[in-house]
Amino acid sequence: MMPLTHTNAFSKLDEIENTALVQLVYVSSLTLTSRLNTTIFDEVEGHARDYNEQYGITGTLCYGNGHFLQCIEGEKAKVAVLSQRIFADSRHKNVQVLLLKVIKQRSFSDWRMRLLFLERWLWSPATKKQATQLSPYLPFAPHDWSAERTEQFLQIIKTFETAPHIKAAGITYNALGNMVRHIAAPHQAFLVVQGFLSVLLVVGLVLLYL
C-alpha cells in the first residue's frame, strides 16, 4: 500500500464501523520553528499521555532525523477525532498515512504513548545493544517506507525491554554535549557540537597557514 493523503485516509476511516479497533500509523516532519522549540517533545509526550489515557488510545511516537512516526490504536471513532487534530497541528508538516487497518488486538496495549528518541548518537551502550535490530531503519527517514517495512519496524520496537529514549535510557552526552544540553534540546545539541567543531577546524587551518 502506498502512503495515503489526509483525504484518502479519512475516506477509508469512514468505511469502518465506529466501534471497530483500528491501527493508524502516520509520518510527518517537524517545521523549522518546532525544531528550535526546546520543549516540544515534553509538550507532545505529556499531552499525548493525558489525552490517550482518557480516550483509550495506545501506541508509540517515534522521533529521529527531524521526522515523526506515530502509531495510534483505539476505537475507530476516537482515532478519527484524534487524527484530525494531529493532522491540523501546525508544528509538523508533510503528513502521510503509512498504515490504516482494522485489528483484533493492540500491539502496544501496555503503552500510553511513549516517545522513542531514535537518535543513535544519544543512546547509552545498553540501549545500542538492545536496538541493534533498528540499524536498517536508521537514519530515520520513514516517509518512503512501505506498509510491510512499517509493520516490521513496529514488530521490532514493541519487543524492547526499555525504550530507546534519551531520558529513560540514562543517556549521557560527550563532554562538549554536556556543556550545551541545558541551552539546547537533544536534537539540537548535535548541530551545536558539529558547528563548534567546524569553527575549530577553520581556525586551525588559518593558524596553520599564517
Results as ranks from 00 to 15, higher is better:
Ala163Met: 00
Lys158Trp: 05
Tyr63Arg: 04
Ser29Pro: 04
Thr132Pro: 00
Val203His: 00
His67Phe: 09
Leu134Thr: 00
Leu13Ser: 12
His187Pro: 05
Glu15Asp: 12
Leu176Ala: 12
Ser11Lys: 10
Val44Asn: 08
Asp14Lys: 13
Arg114Glu: 12
Ser11Gly: 07
His92Arg: 07
His47Ala: 15
Leu210Tyr: 04
Arg49His: 08
Ile157Tyr: 08
Phe68Ser: 15
Leu210Trp: 09
Val192Asn: 07
Tyr63Met: 02
Ala185Met: 12
Phe41Met: 08
Leu61Gly: 05
Glu53Cys: 09
Val199Leu: 11
Lys93Pro: 07
Gln133Val: 08
Val102Ile: 15
Ile72Gln: 07
Ala175Cys: 03
Ser28Asn: 02
Ser135Asp: 14
Lys76Phe: 08
His67Trp: 04
Phe87Val: 09
Phe10Ser: 10
Arg85His: 09
Arg91Ser: 04
Arg35Ile: 01
Thr38His: 14
Ala189Ile: 11
Thr58Gly: 01
Asn94Phe: 14
Leu69Tyr: 00
Glu161His: 13
Ala48Lys: 09
Arg112Tyr: 07
Lys128Cys: 13
Gly66Thr: 09
Ser29Val: 09
Leu100Lys: 01
Ile171Lys: 05
Glu75Arg: 14
Lys12Val: 12
Asp42Ile: 03
Met1Leu: 15
Ser124Gln: 08
Asp89Gly: 11
Arg35His: 03
Ala184Arg: 07
Phe68Glu: 14
